[in-house]
Design a protein around this nucleic acid. Structure first.
Lengths: 194, 194, 194, 194
DNA sequence: TATGAATGAGCGTTCATTCAT
DNA sequence: TATGAATGAACGCTCATTCAT
C-alpha cells in the first residue's frame, strides 16, 4: 500500500488508474483493488467516483504548481523563466510518470467524457498559467522576450506543453529529444532579436 | 436529416455527437435520435459503436488530409507550405466545427478510454504528418527553414496544432487571435535567419 | 441452391441450419444466406421463424414415417417388424445426416426452448409410434414377441431410438457399432423365449 | 427464498427455471425474480448466465453421481448393480423433479443451443457412466450379465435412461409404469441366460 | 474505520418482423 | 415473386452507489 494510510493509498491508486485508463475506463473496483482496500471504502472517503477524480487531479496540479512556482522564481530573466518552467514541467511528467497522466485525463484540455464540475480544476490551471504569464511579462519588461501579446503567448507556451506531453504520453509519435526540442522551439520563437 | 440517406445521416450525427460528448459520453441512442432513425439501424449499418466511432473519425481525417495536401502543394516554398498547412488546418476546424471535434476524440493524441483498434486511425494520421514532413524537408532544402531535425520539427509543428486546437475547442482559455498567433509562433521559430 | 425453386431451397436450408444450431441458435439471416435468397423471402413464404421450424420438422417426420411404414410392412413377423423399423430408422438418420437432426430439435423429446405449437409435430410422431405399435401387437399375436404391455413396449422401443440417436448425433459417447448393438439390445429384450 | 442465503437461492432458482424453460428460454431476470433478488446479483455471484447454467448442472450431476455410487455399491452382483443404478437414477429424477430437469438441458445428450464450455459437464457425466461400467464389468465377471461389449452396453444402458427420462419429462407420451418397465426391459436384455 | 452484499438504471447489441419498392 | 432497409422489444451485462454490519 502506497501512502501512510488507506485514504492516501486510495488517492494514489486513483491517480495511477485514472491516469492509465481514463475516467470512463476506470471502475471503483479497480482503484480499491490497486489500493488494497475494500471497495466500499472508496465511497466512504471520497463520496463519488467523480469527486475522487477531481481530487486526484487537483492534488497533482497543486503539487505541480508549487514546484513550478519555486523553480521559475529562481530564473535570471523572463525568457529564462519560460525555459525553466518548461524544463521543470516536462521533467515533472517524467519523474511522476505513474501519477501525472491523471492530469491528461482531467485537465481543461482533455476530452473527459462526463459533465463534471471542472471549475475546481480550471481554477488550479489558471494558477499554473499565471506562473507562465508572470515570466512572459517579466521577459518583455527586461528585454529578453519579444514584444508579444502576453495572453496569446502565455496560452501558446502552455499549448506547446499540452501538445508535446500528449505526443509523449499518448501518441505513438514520441521522439527521444522531443521535450528538449520543444523547449528550444518555444525559446527560439519568443526571444528578443539581438 | 443531414445527408442523402439514413446511413449518411447516422455518420454525420455520429461525428457531431462523438465530437461533442466523446466516446464514452455518447450513447448509440443519442446518435440515432440525432440522425432521426431507429437505433437498430446504427448496428445494421456500422456493426458496433466502436466501428462507427472509427469510421466517423477516418472519414474526417481523410477529407482533411486531401484538403491539406491540395492546399500545401500550392505553396511557394517550404516555410510557406508550413504556414499554409497550419492556416488551412485551423481554418478547416472552424468550417467544420460541428464534425471536426470527433478527431480530437479519436486521434492518437486523444485520451480515448477504450481499447479500440487505432491502427486504422494511426495510418491516416501518418499521412497527415507526411504532408508536414514534405514541407519541412522542402524548406530546409530551399533555405526557407532553418536546418532543424526533420522528425522533431514535423512532430512539434503538429503538436502546436494539437495544443492550439484543444485550447480552442476544449478549454476555457480560447483567445480571438489564437490560431493566427500560433501560426506566427511556429513560423518565427522555424524560419531561417536572414 | 438445393431444390427446384427458392421456396424449396429455404426449406432445405432451414432443415440443415435448425438441425445444426437449434431453434434459438438459428437466425433467419443464416437460413436465407444458406439458401442463397434475400432474407425477406423467408418471412414471405413461411410467415415466421416458428412456422418454418415446424414446417421443416414436419416435412422430415412425414417422409420418415412413410419410409418406415413401407419398410416395416415387409417384415415376416412382429419381432422382425421392430427390427426392421429400428434398422430403417437408424439408417435414415445416417442417409439424411444433414437434415435429420432438425427432428432432434423439434421432436416431442427435444428440449426446444420456445412455447411453440407442438400439436402438429406431436400428431406426426403419434403416427410414427403407431408403426411401432402395430408391430408390437402383431408380434405378441404371432408369438414372436413376449407378452408385454403394448403401450409400454412401444414407448420403450422408441425411447431406445431417441437415446441412441442422441448419443450418436449429440454426445461425445458415440461408438462404431452403437446402432446395431441397440437394435440387438431391443430385440433380445422383447423376443419371446423359445 | 430457497436456500440459506441469496447465492444458494439463485442457484436453486436457476436449476428450476433452466430445467423448465431451457437455456435460451430462460432470462436472467426470470431467475432473479424466482430467487427474490435483484438481477444484478446473479452476475455478481455467477459471472454470466452461461456460467450459472453450467454451475447449476454440475451441482446436480455431482449430487446425483455421489448418490448413485453409494446406492450401486450396495448391490449383490453386477446385474443387481445395473438395476439399482437405474431405479435410483429414475427415483432421483422424481424426488428432485423441480431441479433435475436442468440436467436434460445441459447434458451431453441435450440439444443446447449455445457454444458453451461443456468440458466441465462432460467430465462429470463420464464419472456417472463409470458407475454403470463398473457394474457391467462386475456382472460379466460374476456371471449375472451376458458376455456383452462393456462399452456398448454401458452406453446403451445410459441411453435407455436418457430416452425414458426425456419421455417422462419432456414428451406427452408418459405412461404410469414407464420407469419400472424400462428397468425391466434393460435387465431382460442383459441378464445371463440361466 | 472498514467491509462487501445488494440494488437497478443504463448500456450495446441482436434479430424477428414489417413494408415500401 | 423478390428485396433489404427499417423498426424497436428484449436481451445479458456493467458498475456507481447504498447500507447493514
Amino acid at each position: 500500500m502506497k501512502g501512510k494510510n488507506k485514504k492516501d493509498a486510495i488517492l494514489y491508486a486513483a491517480q495511477e488508474i485514472f491516469g492509465r485508463y481514463g475516467y470512463a475506463g476506470t471502475t471503483v473496483k479497480m482503484i480499491s483493488e490497486r489500493a488494497g482496500v475494500a471497495f466500499g471504502l472508496v465511497s466512504h472517503y471520497f463520496g463519488s467516483k467523480e469527486e475522487l477524480f477531481i481530487t486526484a487531479g487537483v492534488a497533482i496540479v497543486e503539487d505541480l504548481t508549487e514546484y513550478l512556482s519555486t523553480e521559475t522564481r529562481k530564473a535570471a530573466n523572463g525568457l529564462d523563466g519560460i525555459q525553466t518552467f518548461m524544463r521543470s514541467y516536462l521533467s515533472y511528467t517524467l519523474q511522476h510518470r505513474n501519477t501525472f497522466p491523471v492530469l491528461l485525463r482531467c485537465s481543461p484540455f482533455s476530452d473527459v467524457q462526463i459533465e463534471l464540475d471542472r471549475t475546481r480544476i480550471a481554477v488550479k490551471f489558471q494558477q499554473l498559467l499565471n506562473v507562465i504569464r508572470e515570466s512572459v511579462e517579466r521577459g518583455i519588461e527586461d528585454g529578453s522576450i519579444r514584444s508579444l501579446s502576453v495572453d496569446d503567448t502565455t496560452t501558446i507556451v502552455y499549448s506547446n506543453i499540452v501538445g508535446t506531453v500528449r505526443t509523449r504520453f499518448l501518441s505513438p509519435y514520441d521522439l527521444p529529444n522531443l521535450y528538449e526540442e520543444t523547449t528550444d522551439f518555444v525559446v527560439r520563437s519568443i526571444r528578443a532579436r539581438d
